[in-house]
Amino acid sequence: MRRVMALLEKEIIDLSRNPAVFVPAVLTAVVSICLPFLIAVVLPAVTGEPLTGSSDFRVAIDALDGTAVAARLDGEGLIQAWILRQFVVLLVLTPVAASMASAAYSVVGEKHARTLEPLLTTPLTTAELLAAKVLGSLLPATVLTIACFGVYVAAAAAFAREGVYATLLTGQPLAIVFVLGPLAALAALQLAVCVSSRVNDARSAQQIGALVILPVAGLLVAQLTGTLQLSGTIIAATALVLLSVNAGLALLGVALFDRESILTRWK
């Protein structure tokens, strides 16, 4: 564990001295925060057409009306709450997508910088190396997600109908941000690091790693179209699946990491 912490600290220092890495993450986070407010607050205010006037949001009223979280909301607030709650998934997705670059670059980047071989001469095990690399991307992604969620809730309190923000501080959104989000991020970043230790080119690693975003993006679309509602049961089942996937990926990562090939065949 001490060795993981040593390398993790190095990863964090390295990232903090390269703020350009965070620019795409921050930009996508800003878009993720602004997009739902544009739909739920800005457009109705600009056009003068309330959300309740559109039959497209019938699904929102059906989903939330009569539930405890929406007890004090009027029709407009109900739809705003539904939109903002649905977009929480996007909020979780974007920092992960942005962290993919650093995760995908993690091993192949060390090789190209010629810093990997000295690292492999230390007692650091493969599992420790991969753990530090994954955590080095996961921690900033998680911090960014939580920070974005804080801004999101504050913006809801400031700009949405009264009481809408409180619907974001209930079981489902909190489970997405604090349970599903980190677990999905861990899976995605583990896969990216696995890819990074198997390909000889950072761009390939990033492109292949980006594919892991697709299932989460699919989840977002399914939610927005009303095909899927993330109930407590579905969230719990998804968390269990993600836990298993993460355990499998941890073992796979160690098995796939071929020190000899990395040292002798990568140029």
Binding site: K10, D14, R17, N18, A113, R114, T115, L116, E117, P118
Partner: peptide, 17 residues
């Protein structure tokens, strides 16, 4: 690895540290 120290061909320092 406790017994052996190896200086690789490239110094391999982390530039941002």
């Amino acid at each position: 690895r406790t017994r052996i120290g190896i200086l690789t061909e490239a110094p391999g320092l982390w530039d941002r540290l």
